[in-house]
């Protein structure tokens, strides 16, 4: 059972915000979807290993060598705001 409070909390964690009407609609929709996925609870999965990837995932290492990569201008090429070679953001504190 998902409550309006759960939805508000998830919105905060997701860095999203919603109007009143949207929150009500979303609560109802997520309630339906969670009700649907709750089906998994009926299945016994004791002793079953979880699958996070279907292939064996191993750490891949490489030589610590300098290779061509983006220069500063390329890295900043899509930045919504930039200044003096840096990303520019609004104030981080009140």
């Amino acid at each position: 059972m998902i409550t309006r409070k759960d939805v508000e909390h998830a919105a905060k964690l997701s860095q999203l915000k919603f109007g009143e009407e949207e929150l009500n609609r979303l609560t109802k929709q997520l309630e339906d979807i969670i009700g649907f996925v709750d089906k998994l609870a009926e299945l016994n999965t004791d002793g079953i290993e979880p699958t996070s990837s279907v292939i064996p995932v191993v750490n891949v290492t490489r030589e610590d060598a300098v290779k061509p990569s983006f220069d500063r201008e390329q890295a900043l090429s899509n930045a919504p705001e930039k200044e003096m070679g840096h990303y520019k953001i609004p104030k981080i504190m009140e």
């Binding site: 998902i2 939805v7 964690l13 997701s14 998994l40 079953i48 979880p50 996070s52």
Partner: peptide, 27 residues
């Protein structure tokens, strides 16, 4: 909607019941 659902199933208190459970069913 999907970001919200994904955040919810990964959030504290629900991770085991939803996300971990789903990974086991995936097996």
């Amino acid at each position: 909607r999907r970001i919200m659902l994904g955040t919810y199933v990964l959030s504290a208190g629900y991770y085991d019941a939803y996300y971990l459970k789903a990974q086991k069913v995936r097996t």
